[in-house]
């Protein structure tokens, strides 16, 4: 079943009532959700580019006027081309000693840095923490998500990918 715009706004804001949330979890999905969701997000951001796909809590793949696709933070910061890995253009802070890890957890409850480190990725403009990785030293930076936007819009949603705005 479909939900009204207000319910989806509440879902985004985390203020939705349990009854509706439970219904969302237990009943078949509402296929119109994506459009409504993207419309709400588009209205909330302050940049002019068209959101094609939300990538994360503050990240979007957007389409610019010239048709190019980039990853943007909702503060307006542009990371890179949509094909690239945004993390490579973020600021990184690595917690790799007991002291910096103890700022997060009691000592016995923190990873041992000779086994595992914490990598925090920040937006270089607004300082939001966009991702945290807990990996061994030397670990390559993974590209988490490579969506097939064409197949998603055309084959799954049955709608064309939005045209670049003139």
């Amino acid at each position: 079943m479909a939900y009204d715009r207000k319910k989806i706004e509440e879902l985004i804001d985390g203020t939705i009532d349990w009854e509706t949330l439970h219904r969302m979890l237990s009943q078949p999905k509402d296929p119109e959700r994506f459009q409504l969701y993207v419309d709400i997000l588009q209205e909330r951001v302050h940049f002019p580019e068209t959101i094609l796909l939300p990538m994360g809590l503050h990240l979007y793949i957007v389409q610019k006027k010239d048709g190019s696709r980039v990853v943007k933070c909702d503060c307006g910061h542009e990371f890179c081309s949509a094909d690239d890995n945004w993390k490579m253009y973020a600021l990184i802070y690595v917690r790799e000693d007991e002291e910096s890890l103890n700022e997060l957890y009691p000592k016995l409850m923190a990873p041992d840095p000779s086994w595992q480190v914490l990598r925090e990725y920040y937006c270089p403009n607004c300082g939001t923490q966009l991702e945290v990785e807990n990996v061994t030293p030397w670990y390559p930076i993974l590209k988490d998500f490579e969506p097939d936007i064409e197949a998603f819009y055309q084959e799954w949603l049955g709608i064309p990918v939005p045209e670049p705005k003139k």
Partner: peptide, 20 residues
């Protein structure tokens, strides 16, 4: 688990604490 945490945070969240 003790020296490492096996889960991971998502979209800016932190992983859980390790064991001891």
């Amino acid at each position: 688990n003790g020296y490492m945490v096996s889960d991971g945070g998502l979209m800016g969240g932190y992983p859980a604490a390790t064991g001891y």
